[in-house]
Design a protein around this nucleic acid. Structure first.
Lengths: 179, 179
DNA sequence: GCTTATCGTTCGATTTGACGAACGAGGCTC
DNA sequence: GAGCCTCGTTCGTCAAATCGAACGATAAGC
């Protein structure tokens, strides 16, 4: 944890091209403190880290969480598919929530039939749906709306909600946001 | 900053339904420390906050960044459209990044022609593209990949990247994630 | 009522993070 | 070379974060 922050601080400061002294001045902390942090000595308080993140103009998570990878592709047929019981509803996980992110992204392929009712997820989650092709009834179980290709809807994910295809091979993208 | 962490800790602990004593035990910190943190007294070290985030099974950002807010629909033709210069690239803003969220969601409608090259966004951003219809070359300017309907790709948004339609009326969903 | 839990808070002792001053190293002008 | 600047590090001091122990409160079991 501490060495990671040390590395992050060094990396971000190098990237911004400013000196240790200057960064300490902008963040309003003692440069001795910053020196120790970059050398991996010490365990910064959140206030200190916050000041540094602001001064570096990066989100604080960039100093705490590990760096990220590069291009990744999931082809139309590939990926982890979460089949529904009745096989009329297939959700492919495109991007699961890694540490630092707050959303899962799915591709949907749904056939007409029974509406799929989802139980509430964690409190605070919200869902975003963009319909690619077809037609569907989407939204809170109490007040679904009808979407056509290209339409977008967002609604709370922490209340019961439905997705019902109204045409064969209805496809869409769904983003589950975890706050 | 400190009051926000205090509120976050209390909220997440309430959500998980465990006691202060139990959380302190799981996180390996003194419960007196946790008591003070939840009451807004004190400025936790990153190690302490990290231990709490792990014990609460939430990303550490949920303890640091502010929280959030029903059904909203944007029809295929509606919404704020960001036209490109050459009108061959139209991005409709579906969900802009509200406080607490970390992503913008766009609908894309692109015509073949010149590739659209985007300058890097803020450090740490990443982009997710799901192609709805058509075909496109997408990704880092240095190594774009070809996507077909239903394909998905993700790549860093903080480096130059391109989007070039290879078929008329290529549509997709793009998620810009700000970490 | 008494015991035995767990709950969350408060208090003193200890550890340690943050500060400011001083330091040597390197670069610059004159 | 002398003077002056900025660089990053090291040191002693002080404030504060963390700890462990003790506290009163509340609930459950006998």
């Amino acid at each position: 944890m501490v060495p990671r922050i040390a590395a992050s601080l060094r990396r971000e400061r190098d990237r911004s091209g400013i000196s240790l002294t200057e960064l300490a001045r902008r963040a309003g902390i003692a440069k001795s403190t910053l020196s120790q942090l970059e050398s991996g000595t010490g365990n910064p308080s959140v206030e200190t880290l916050w000041a540094l993140a602001v001064a570096l103009e990066v989100p604080i998570s960039r100093l705490i969480e590990p760096p990220r990878p590069n291009v990744q592709v999931i082809r139309a047929g590939d990926g982890l598919v979460l089949q529904s019981e009745r096989a009329s509803y297939a959700a492919t996980l495109l991007a699961s929530c890694p540490p630092g992110a707050r959303r899962d992204i799915f591709r949907l392929l749904v056939q007409p039939g029974e509406a799929r009712v989802s139980e509430p997820h964690n409190p605070g989650t919200s869902e975003h749906v963009v319909l690619s092709t077809g037609r569907a009834r989407v939204g809170p179980a109490t007040e679904p709306v009808e979407l056509r290709a290209g339409d977008y809807a967002t609604y709370p994910g922490d209340a019961p909600h439905v997705f019902e295809a109204l045409e064969p091979d209805t496809t869409g993208v769904i983003i589950m946001e975890h706050i």
